[in-house]
Design a protein around this nucleic acid. Structure first.
Ligand code: FES
Ligand code: FES
Lengths: 134, 134
DNA sequence: AAGGCACGCAACACCGTTTGTTACGTGAGC
DNA sequence: GCTCACGTAACAAACGGTGTTGCGTGCCTT
């Protein structure tokens, strides 16, 4: 949709994890596989952890692992975990007055919210285990 | 949704025009009213003209005017006029192989297309004349 | 107990997109 | 001919996303 890549990375990684949930992966592994940087991986995976989709462990045999059964994690969960909502989340917008602008804004955000609802609904129909993880 | 402001500007301007379609407005007027720059106005309004929503005239009493009846211009028309599709338009994406990545991408873009469809459908339910132009 | 490993986090450089600004050309009136 | 307003290009500034480095903190191995 918008300025992605985070979603792609998250989904890609989770898909692989779904293929072998017990295996522990380091951010370095993931980064190399995804062609990016370990820190970047930790950044986005961190959000997923905060949402309870992943767990991370430090130390020698540390790394990342799914916190739930692959079948229970839907694409919507992932989308929501990295909260990049369509509706540009509660922004302290411009002119409060101006009847027209207000009406306009209301209309548009109304539609947007409806659409986002739809998006989430559609995403929730697929789990990460339904996308073959090699 | 994404990196907007163009949509806002377009909608705001058209709403005002809908309130008094015969009146001719200059980009300078519009820019001042919208708190931006004339060139910026021309840029975005130019797209609307290309889409047949507006006409522009040079010379002394030149400016911008609606090319259609206000009731015939829907929000969807405006949205489509400045083509900033949600689905990040036909990008020549990454790795062609990788069954997983491909399946994933397909799923996501599928949903996205459906959602964008919905967005357009919802936007088309409202015309710019339905938003009080003072 | 010491060393190493992997995450957590902050700071910063880099880059692409968007927005704003200046400048100049063109056509339509006056 | 002069002015007005658009059309367009070029460039600067602002913004957000991504990549990188550095350092701190647990945890496991030895
Ligand atoms: S200023 Fe209020 S709508 Fe234009
Ligand atoms: S490389 Fe991870 S899906 Fe192909």
């Amino acid at each position: 949709m918008k300025r992605n890549s985070r979603l792609s990375l998250a989904l890609h990684t989770l898909s692989h994890m779904a293929g072998d949930p017990s295996r522990m992966r380091t951010s370095a592994d993931i980064a190399e596989h995804a062609g990016t940087n370990p820190v970047v991986v930790r950044r986005v995976l961190g959000r997923l952890r905060k949402a309870g989709l992943l767990t991370s462990e430090k130390g020698h045999s540390g790394g990342w692992r799914l916190a739930q059964a692959p079948e229970d994690i839907t694409l919507a969960d992932v989308y929501l975990a990295l909260d990049e909502r369509l509706v540009t989340g509660g922004d302290s917008d411009e002119a409060p007055a101006c009847s027209v602008e207000k009406a306009l804004h209301k209309r548009v955000t109304g539609v947007l919210e409806d659409v986002e609802q739809r998006l989430i609904q559609r995403l929730s129909e697929t789990s990460i285990s339904e996308v073959r993880g090699n």
